[in-house]
Design a binder for these strands. Structure first.
Length: 446
RNA sequence: GCCGCUGUAGCUCAGUAGGUCAGAGCAUCCGGCUGUUAACCGGACGGUCAUCGGUUCGAAUCCGAUCAGCGGCGCCA
């Protein structure tokens, strides 16, 4: 097959420009067939590009026989190049249409497997094609803004972006959620040799890297083999993490608050149309106000118990509890001072040693936890003590303990679940709707 | 890990006191239509009823196992 030629981008007009009435006449557009209807002498071809959709009318009176027949028979998702006169017409969806004078089908699509009758499973099986849908495109644009806003915010504060390994043998979360990676080895009985776990968080590496750069952040996938079957869990999720030397928990919380506000205002200024397309009430995001409420774990216990729960010190908040706490909130809320069992790397509160100097940030409307963070144990003696307390072996934390021996300093950090954040901002009912290829315990394809 | 649910045409589904139960709409193909809004009208094509086994004269329908997927919980971001 001969390699097809096509004119340069500069010769085409974006559909959004036409819809805004800013285009030349005639215009040339290129895109994909979104919908198609035809009668004997007139064909309505709705074309989409990455900027919008517009109805194009192909009339037998204006074009030759062959282009007309091609327009009639081309199926949804065929790629097309066409030329015509943009006309304001109330009968067209979007208010504008193109009266076509030249219609070329660049590639005739096979029958597109996704039709108006859709099921979740079918869309997931055809995710590689569903990514063309307007909803996916809108969500991915918002996602891109969140990544950019996160990066801009911390870069603006002179934090340095760094990368940590995905292969690791250190576990910083529960061992039960570790993924194992092996490689083929004929000398092993099983035929495979264990190589490493997949990283659950950059944290241990961040604490090492921090001593040179002081203020650092990363954007990377984390992996957790939680057999979670919920609308909030992925096995591979994007983790935005920050670590900072000479930083206290409350200072970090203030910076995080600024970060969340920056992300929201970036999304509001760049993705208003995308939010509306997704059916998100924009005013909900506009009404988010700082400072966010702060409650101690103990206060949350009391509040929940007054709402009918029966919780005592040490109990975790499940989704039911988080939802009860956040479903009527307008802004996110911090919970601090969790019980010291929550994690060995968080620093116990000197004024209240049964709790930790740490925080979670819960998104409103029942979306739940999006940030977990806190001040780290910085003294080597206390760290060994805390590791033993958790029933772990300090020996297995060799290099992590080593970094505390050379000029250790107080420091804090946090991890933000990007996908959960985007899901919240989009008002999505499932986290899988805001990542191109979601990975769960039951799905790794496409 | 636990609880619950689903699997019938390419897609979405109906069909179970076991016996005209192999069905509809959409998609696709053929024909018709000059203003359609995931159009409309006529026709055609299309299914080992997830798989394997069992009960029965007879199973899409009842039973068991397996596979695949979905929802929720626990846990977490």
């Amino acid at each position: 097959m001969k390699y097809p030629e096509f004119p340069d981008k500069s010769e085409y007009t974006a559909i959004s420009e036409i819809l805004q009435g800013q285009s030349e006449n005639p215009v040339k557009i290129r895109g994909w067939i979104y919908r198609t209807r035809s009668s004997g002498k007139l064909a309505f071809i709705v074309v989409r590009d990455s900027t919008g959709i517009i109805q194009c009318t192909v009339s037998k009176e204006r074009v030759d026989e062959e282009p007309f027949e091609n327009a009639r028979k081309a199926l949804i998702e065929s790629s097309v190049i066409l030329e015509g006169e943009p006309v304001k017409d109330e009968r067209a969806p979007g208010g504008w249409e193109i009266r076509v004078t030249n219609f070329e089908v660049f590639h005739f699509a096979d029958t597109f497997p996704i039709t108006k009758d859709q099921s979740d499973e079918h869309l997931m099986n055809n995710r590689h094609l569903w990514l063309r849908s307007r909803n996916m495109v809108a969500a991915l644009r918002i996602r891109s803004t969140v990544f950019k806003a996160f990066r801009d915010y911390w870069t603006g504060l002179e934090f340095t972006e760094i990368q940590s390994p995905s292969f690791t043998t250190s576990a910083c979360e529960g061992g039960s959620t570790l993924f194992n990676v092996s490689y083929d080895d004929e000398n092993e009985k099983s035929g495979q040799r264990f190589y490493a776990h997949l990283s659950q968080s950059w944290q241990l590496y961040a604490e090492a890297t921090m001593f040179g750069l002081e203020n650092i952040f990363t954007l990377a996938p984390s992996f957790r083999a939680e057999k979670s079957r919920t609308r909030r869990h992925l096995t591979e999720f994007w983790h935005a993490e920050v670590e900072s030397a000479w930083m206290h928990n409350h200072q970090m919380m203030e910076l995080e608050e600024g970060m969340i506000l920056n992300i929201i205002s970036a999304v509001l200024s760049r993705n208003r149309e995308d939010l509306e397309l997704l059916g998100r009430d924009v005013s909900v995001l506009e009404n988010i106000k700082a400072p966010f409420d702060k409650m101690k774990y103990e206060e949350v216990l009391d509040k929940l118990n007054s709402m009918g729960f029966d919780l005592s010190w040490g109990d975790d908040f499940g989704y039911k509890e988080e939802k009860a706490l956040t479903q009527d909130l307008k802004s996110p809320i911090y919970i601090t001072n969790f019980p010291r069992e929550k994690g060995f790397y968080h620093r116990p509160d000197p004024n209240d040693p049964k709790s930790l100097v740490c925080h979670d940030l819960l998104a409103p409307e029942g979306y739940g936890e999006i940030i977990g963070g806190g001040e780290r144990v910085w003294s080597p003696e206390e760290l060994v003590e805390r590791i033993r307390e958790e029933g772990l072996d300090p020996e297995s934390y060799g290099w992590y303990l080593d970094i505390r021996k050379f000029g250790s300093v107080p420091h804090s950090g946090f991890g933000l679940g990007i996908d959960r954040t985007v899901s919240w901002l989009c008002g999505s009912d499932h986290i899988k709707h805001v990542i191109p290829f979601p990975r769960t315990m039951r799905r790794t394809t496409p």
